[in-house]
Design a protein around this nucleic acid. Structure first.
Length: 316
DNA sequence: TACCAGGTGGAGT
DNA sequence: ACTCCACATGGT
């Protein structure tokens, strides 16, 4: 008979027990672009991995296709950053003196940063400029489907696979794809940035890997050399793809958050970034993720009524 | 129909 | 240094 697509569910360890909405925010809130939920089960991919997660009584369960299970078991702890003490990291944020931050922490208990593959994170956020998350996910899915290697040596045309799974194309592969084919993946003007960045990276073997391991300021300076990578994208890549918690990406939502909740109306992104790093400290990027999640979920509703003073409290 | 979306780079002051 | 603007495309 054919091998089952998925192996049996296994408990994730160390434990990771977010409430389902927080798991959703973690996997699908704008850090990563390759997770989908159906019937309470999250299916996600990174590098050569394919994993499902579901909430169970004592924590999360996970499973993979049998052929990929061993590799996934080794890779999952790093991807989900299970070895980090997120409760302690979150507690180190200045929530005691910042009522709005305290409100954000309470609204998304257990939110964490993923540790995604560096190159894939770069690709995702090169797609992100002035696009909604659902649209970024669509671009990334098309890039994988059309230009990435199949994940499994697929057994049968009639297999029970709901869809075929593909890796994202590596940067060396992206360099060989004509810009017109990238545009066909709904990338729009981002296609030329991805193409030019791929050519840049392909001309410098080892450059991307070295960049990942440099200290934050040097790594950011190198990422800024890439066409299409500015302050915000560089910080997202370092925060979500290199574990640099001091990176403080300022996107339109964080700009809104700091304007509405901290009174920084009219401030430029660079000024807001400076404020964020000094106010939130060495793990400013973690604080940023809470602010981002809260503003997207509750921000507009909280505007009805009160003026946006510092840390005006909307009811939870 | 407007306006917005996890922005960036370039041109003109 | 700052301000405006083009860049593609779909969602609301």
């Amino acid at each position: 008979m054919t091998e089952p697509l998925w192996s049996g569910w296994q408990p994730l360890s160390p434990r990771f027990t977010p409430p389902p909405p927080v798991l959703a925010e973690t996997l699908d809130g704008g850090q990563a672009f390759r997770w989908r939920q159906t019937d309470g089960v999250w299916t996600g991919q990174w590098a050569g991995h394919l994993v499902q997660l579901r909430s169970a009584a004592g924590g999360l369960d996970w499973r993979s296709p049998p052929a990929l299970q061993a590799a996934a078991a080794a890779a999952l702890p790093r991807y989900l950053a299970l070895d980090h003490d997120w409760a302690a990291l979150t507690d180190s944020l200045p929530w005691r003196s910042d009522p709005h931050l305290a409100q954000c922490l309470a609204a998304f208990p257990g939110l964490r940063l993923l540790r995604q593959p560096f190159g894939e994170t770069l690709l995702g956020f090169l797609c992100s400029a002035t696009k909604q998350i659902v649209q970024i996910k669509q671009m990334v899915a098309l890039l994988a489907a059309r230009h990435g290697l199949p994940l499994l040596p697929l057994p049968a045309p009639r297999s029970r696979l709901p869809a075929s799974f593909h890796r994202l194309p590596a940067w060396s592969e992206l360099a060989t794809i004509p810009e017109s084919e990238l545009r066909a993946c709904l990338l729009g003007f981002r296609a030329k940035y991805i193409h030019a960045s791929a050519v840049f990276i392909a001309a410098r073997p080892g450059w991307l890997e070295e960049t990942e391991h440099l200290p934050y300021p040097a790594a950011k300076a190198r990422l800024l050399e890439l066409p299409g990578v500015g302050e915000k994208v560089a910080d997202c890549v370092l925060l979500f793809g290199a574990g640099r918690l001091e990176a403080f990406p300022v996107d339109t939502w964080v700009l809104k958050s700091l304007a509405r909740r901290y009174g920084l109306v009219g401030w430029q992104p660079a000024q807001v970034a400076h404020f964020g790093r000094t106010h939130f400290g060495a793990r400013a990027g973690l604080a940023q993720q809470y602010l981002f999640a809260w503003e997207r979920e509750f921000g507009d509703r909280s505007l009805e009524g009160g003026t946006a003073g510092p840390a005006t409290g909307a009811a939870l």
